[in-house]
């Protein structure tokens, strides 16, 4: 068991997949392996692909993987689909669009369910990125669940964020709203052979012209059509691939990559602190049945959450 971390560093798929599963299932002791690999990470370019359900994220991801393979790069893909809020089950269907890479040893594709996370990815995604990075993958593509306006968690993990839009989703005010429309480093208007493409392009291009980016990155708005014509489609996606690489160079040249990494590292450290400090307290309160008693007190309005929390904080101060 001890050698799991070593095997991941050697690029072993089965070990990496098992480690990711342990992270998803939050198996105690898994962090020992993360300790083994963490200091070896930081070499991969992480690309996020996000957009509404059915916008074409998986199909674009599949073609991007192909483009990267043509460029002799190894690729990791983390594809996220939603968990049922009712049964806890999930139907993970992103592989359907990416079948042709199944046997390519240079591609590692892993599906993940959101398991209750609301930000468009799952809690384990950040750690799974490290695992693929440690395996030596050159590029890691994270495909989010189909998102709405607000699920922007991907910005904490990806160096380059691609937002996929399709025509026919609303008026020009939609393009001005906060949230999803703010996070793109690259916009793709997919299914651009459909009605409404010209006006969507105009709205997004106008919005982009108003954006101010550090270092002068001009957010490209790229049109993709003709998924039925494989050659043309491949050419469009190859252009996207060029833009992704331009963006990476821009981040490095303008010393902006460190800023994005800092954001990710901060949020990871917050998580780790939560796990190391709050989780043991919660477990302890749960195990003793005290949690339920405190909830009862609150329901009866005998006290308030702030007073109780302060009491708990004092009690556990020197214990965790």
């Amino acid at each position: 068991m001890k050698e799991l971390g070593q095997k991941v560093l050697a690029g072993d798929v089965r070990s990496a997949s098992r480690l990711i599963r342990n992270l998803e299932d939050q198996i105690p002791g898994t962090h020992v392996f993360m300790q083994q690999i963490f200091t070896k990470t930081g070499n991969a370019h992480v690309i996020g692909i996000t957009g509404a359900p059915g916008a074409g994220k998986s199909t674009l991801t599949d073609e991007l993987v192909f483009s990267y393979r043509q460029r002799k790069k190894t690729v990791g893909v983390l594809a996220v689909d939603p968990t049922s809020p009712f049964t806890g089950g999930a139907l993970l269907g992103d592989r359907i669009r990416m079948l042709r890479h199944a046997e390519d040893k240079g591609v590692f594709l892993r599906s993940l369910a959101t398991r209750g996370s609301m930000g468009g990815i799952s809690k384990a995604v950040g750690e799974a990125i490290h695992v693929m990075d440690a395996m030596g993958k050159d590029s890691i593509i994270v495909e989010t669940v189909g998102v709405g306006q607000q699920e922007v968690e991907i910005i904490n993990h990806a160096h380059t964020v691609i937002v996929v839009l399709v025509p026919g989703m609303g008026d020009e005010i939609q393009a001005l709203k906060a949230g999803l429309m703010e996070i793109a480093d690259i916009f793709i208007i997919n299914k651009a052979d459909r009605d409404g493409t010209a006006s969507l392009y105009k709205e997004v291009a106008n919005m982009v012209h108003m954006s101010v980016t550090k270092g002068g990155w001009e957010i490209p708005v790229l049109l993709v059509e003709s998924v039925q014509e494989p050659k043309k489609f491949a050419e469009s996606v190859s252009v996207i691939c060029d833009k992704i690489e331009d963006h990476y160079r821009y981040l490095v040249d303008n010393n902006l990559l460190s800023e994005r990494l800092r954001r990710k590292t901060t949020s990871e450290f917050n998580e780790a602190l939560w796990g190391a400090i709050l989780q043991p307290v919660l477990n302890d309160l749960d195990a003793g049945g005290e949690m339920e008693k405190m909830i009862d007190k609150l329901l009866k309005k005998e006290t308030d959450p702030y007073t109780l929390a302060a009491e708990v904080a004092v009690r556990y101060k020197n214990k965790v």
Partner: peptide, 22 residues
């Protein structure tokens, strides 16, 4: 958690997918 691959898979693709998906 169900990973559905769709039709027309070779046994090699299925085995590789099973391992990648743990």
């Amino acid at each position: 958690e169900v990973i559905y691959t769709g039709c027309h898979q070779t046994p090699e693709q299925i085995a590789a997918a099973a391992i990648q998906e743990d």
